[in-house]
Amino acid sequence: MLDDDQLAARNAELRGTLDNLMRELKDRTDGLRDAQAAIAAMSGVASSPDGNVVVTVDSTGVLDKLELGPRAFERVTPEQLAQTITQVTRRAAANVREQVTAQMAPLTSEEGMVDLPDIVPGAPSLKDIFKVEQRDEPAPPSDEDFGSSVLRKEARPVQRAASEPDDDDFGGNSIMGRRDSW
């Protein structure tokens, strides 16, 4: 059995460990608040190799701004332009994810962190609070994925069918013009 001096020493040691744990938690919580503010202001930017597509995404990877250069529609099919926009958007999102990861790295480090199970066996781990889960994302496209310029070598004029009726032309058969009953 422990005497009073041993109990007091053990109590002081436990109190010191808990004080360190609370200080660590407060510092990390303050750091997390600061990191969240910095992350909210982040954006990712990427452009196509020819500069005709520039994409800016916010800190969550959501498209914020899409800029198309003056030659973006020349000699390019809609499918090619859509593919380029998609690839550039993915690169911008990867860019902002890298920034967020770098911002969070000091807070997610477990080095030297005192954890609750170290003090109270079976207690939940505080380390789990600060873990950043990584989603499986496709690798961002590189410049080689774009091939060459998104522009086709030869321009093809867009042709519309001559027989396409106007959207509001019902050939005189509109129900709005009928005078007869239903």
Rank of each mutant, 00 (worst) to 15 (best):
R33E: 13
D50T: 08
D19R: 10
V76N: 06
D34V: 11
D30W: 05
D19K: 14
T84A: 10
V76M: 08
L81F: 07
T29K: 07
D34T: 12
P70F: 07
S43V: 07
L63M: 08
D30A: 09
D50V: 02
T56W: 02
V45I: 14
T77E: 12
V76L: 07
V54C: 01
Q80P: 04
T86V: 15
D58L: 05
D19S: 14
L25C: 11
A40W: 06
L32H: 04
N20V: 11
G69T: 06
Q83S: 12
T60S: 09
S47V: 04
L32A: 08
G31A: 10
A40T: 13
E24Q: 15
T56K: 01
A72E: 05
D50H: 03
T60V: 09
D30R: 11
P78D: 15
D58W: 01
D34E: 14
R23D: 10
Q87C: 07
V62R: 13
V57N: 00
A38W: 03
I39F: 03
D64N: 08
L32Y: 11
D27R: 13
S47R: 11
E74V: 09
L18F: 12
R23T: 11
G61Y: 06
S47E: 15
P78E: 12
P78G: 14
V88D: 00
R23M: 07
V57G: 00
N52V: 03
T84C: 08
A46G: 07
P78H: 14
S59W: 07
I85Q: 02
G44E: 05
M22E: 15
L18M: 13
P70K: 09
T29S: 14
D64K: 06
V55H: 01
S59L: 02
R90K: 03
N52H: 12
N20I: 02
T56E: 08
T17Y: 09
A82D: 10
L32D: 04
K26E: 14
I39G: 01
A72L: 04
R91W: 00
T77G: 13
G31N: 06
E79Y: 08
L63T: 04
R91H: 07
T17V: 12
A35N: 09
G69E: 03
V76Y: 05
R23E: 13
T56L: 00
A37Q: 15
V45P: 01
G31C: 06
E24L: 13
D64V: 02
